[in-house]
Design a protein around this nucleic acid. Sequence first.
DNA 1: TCACTTTTTGAAAGCGCTTTAAACTTTGCA
DNA 2: TGCAAAGTTTAAAGCGCTTTCAAAAAGTGA
Lengths: 339, 339
Amino acid sequence: MNLKALSEHLGLSQTTVSRALNGYPEVSLRTRQRVTDAAQNLGYRPNHAARGLATGKAGAIAVVMRMAAGQAADPHYGEFLSGVGEAALSLGYDILLSPVTRETEEATFRRLAQSGQVDGILLSSPFVSDERIKLLDDINIPYMVHGRDNERTRPYPFLDIDNKGAFFEAARLLVGLGHRKIGLINGLANLNFANDRALGVIEALAENGYKIDPALISNGEMTDEYGYRQTAKMLDSDTAPTAILCSSLFIALGAVRAIYDRGLKIGSDVSLLAHDDVIPYLKPENFRVPLATTRSSIRAAGLRAMQRLVDGIDTPSTEGEIWPVDLIVRESIGPAPAN
Amino acid sequence: MNLKALSEHLGLSQTTVSRALNGYPEVSLRTRQRVTDAAQNLGYRPNHAARGLATGKAGAIAVVMRMAAGQAADPHYGEFLSGVGEAALSLGYDILLSPVTRETEEATFRRLAQSGQVDGILLSSPFVSDERIKLLDDINIPYMVHGRDNERTRPYPFLDIDNKGAFFEAARLLVGLGHRKIGLINGLANLNFANDRALGVIEALAENGYKIDPALISNGEMTDEYGYRQTAKMLDSDTAPTAILCSSLFIALGAVRAIYDRGLKIGSDVSLLAHDDVIPYLKPENFRVPLATTRSSIRAAGLRAMQRLVDGIDTPSTEGEIWPVDLIVRESIGPAPAN
DNA sequence: TCACTTTTTGAAAGCGCTTTAAACTTTGCA
DNA sequence: TGCAAAGTTTAAAGCGCTTTCAAAAAGTGA
C-alpha cells in the first residue's frame, strides 16, 4: 500500500493525499477526513526512504557508541540513552545507535552526515582535546556534545554538569572537616569530566594551601573492581587518605568493601563521597552507611541534550549549558580522625 | 557530491560508477580503480535514502527499548546492546533504537516494518504470552527474540539461555546441601525468564518432595534496593530461608547488605547465589564473600541474536536456540545450618 | 579479414514520496 | 450578473540511487 495506490483508491491525486496526510492547510476538511480514514483503514505508512529522499530529512539522530574491544560498556551509558530515548519518543525522532571503534569512528561520522541518514549527531563524554568535535564542525552537521572539551576555544553546542565545581565543593567540605590527605578515584584520564573533577579537588586543597599527593589520584574504568583495588592500595600505603572521593557509585561499591576489609569504619576512620549519576538501580542512600554524594541525573542530561540537538537542527546554536550539581551530605563523611 | 556529479567528473555513466562502487563484476579493473579513487578523493558517500528507495533495503535493524514512565532502565540492557552493537559493527548494519511505551509499541512496530526503515526487529526479554511476537509474525518482517515465550506454540526464531535449567541446578545443589527453605528474589513476574527461573527452583524442590513457600518467592524490578527489602523481609519472617537465589547481581548487592545488617554470615548462616549476566563492572568474585552464580554472558547473547537476525533477513529461520548456563560455586554457599 | 563471442559501458526506467506551478471551483461583493 | 479573490485540486518534476535492457568495444578463431 503506497501513496499511488491510496490516491487511486480515493480517486484523488497523490498531491492532495500527501498534503492531507501531512497536515497542509490547503486541503478541505472533508477531503482530509476521507483521506486520513482511508489511510488508517488500509494501513498506509509512508515509505521512509522515499520521504527522506524527497524532503532531505531523516527523522533520526545518531548516538555514537564506542566499542573498544574488551572494554566494558559504561554502566552510566544505558541511563543516558534512556533519557535520550525519552526525548526522542516525545519529539518523534528515532535514534540511530552507531557502534564505532576508534578506527571506524571518523568514517562513520562522515558517512552518517553525508549520506543523510541522520539529521544530527549526539556525542557523549568527550576527551580532553577531542578531535571529534572539530570533525563534527568540519562535516557540517548539527550536533550536540554531552560533556565538554576544555581545550577547545571555539564555541560549540554542549551540555555538561559542573564537574569541577562539584568536586571542588566536595573536597572543600572535606578539608573543612579537617581532612588533608584526600584520595580521588577517578574515571579514565583522557576523559574531560575526569579531568575537571581532579581540577576541582586540586583547587579546593590549594585554596587552603595544601597539595594533593599524586599517589592519591588514580584513573581507570569506573568499575567495582577498580574501586576496590585502588582503595586497597591507597589505604595500605604509608600516606593513607582519611577521605576518598569516587567518580562513580560503582567505584564506591568497591571502595566500601576495601574499607570494611581492613576493619575501618566509614564516616569516622575513612570518609567516603562519590558522584551519583542517579542510577535507579543503585542508590547511595541504600549503602550500609548512607553515602554522601555529588548528584546530577545523567538521564535528565540525555533528555535535555537530545532536545537541544533537535531544536538546533533548524536553528543552530553554539551555546554551552552547564548544570550545577547538588552536594548531598550523608553519614559516610565525618571529621578527619585525630592523628 | 552525488552520483551524477561523480560520474560526470569521471566522464562515465552513473551506471558504471554505481557498479564499480558496489563491486559488480562487469566493470574492468582499470575503470573500477579510477572510480574508487575518485570517490575517495572527492569524499563521495551514497545517499542513504536514495539507495534504500532503489534497493528496498535499509541496512539497519530496530531494537525496541521500552520506556515505561518512571521505570528504571534495566542495567543489563546496556550490556545486551553492547553485544548487539558489536555484531552490527562487523556486519555493517546500523541499529535503530526505538523508544516505545506500551501504548506506542504496536504502532511503532508497524511503522518500522512497513515504512522500510529497518530490515528486521530485535525483541528482547519477552513477557509470558507476549502478544508482540504474534504481531511481528503478522506484520511480516524478519525478527529475532532474545529470550522466549513459553506460552507460544507456533515456532519462532529466538535465542535464550536455559533459565529453568540453571535455576533447577542451582536449587538442586542447595537442596543437596540440606537447604529446605529456599528464597527466590526474582525479576518482574510477567517476564518469561523470571517465570522460567521460578519453575526451575520449584521443580528442584519437588524432585525431593519439598514445596517452596510462596512467601519466599518475590517478583520486582531487579535493583539493589529491591534486593535489600525482600531479603530483609524474608530474613525477618518466621520462615526465614537458609538460602536465597537472586535473579541479578544487583539484587544480590542488596541481599548482601540485608544479611550483614542482621549480623548473619554469608555461606554459613545464609547461602546466597545469584544469576550473573557477566557485567564487566560488577563481578561476583569480587563480593566480600565471593558469590556463587549461574552465569551466562548477556553480551554474547546480544551479539549472537543480532547475527542470527541479519542472517535470517535473506533466509528466514524459526529456530529456537537455547544456551546452557554455567553453575559456578563460590564461598557464598554452604551446608544448611543445623536447626 | 570477418563473423562471432565475450567483456564493458550506457540510456532510461523506476523506487515512493514532496512540492512547484498551474488549473479549476467556489465565494464575496459591487 | 460578473469578476476578482480565495479556496481546492492536479500534473509533473525531482530527490539520488539501482538495475534492466541494449549497444558498443574488445577479443577470438578460422
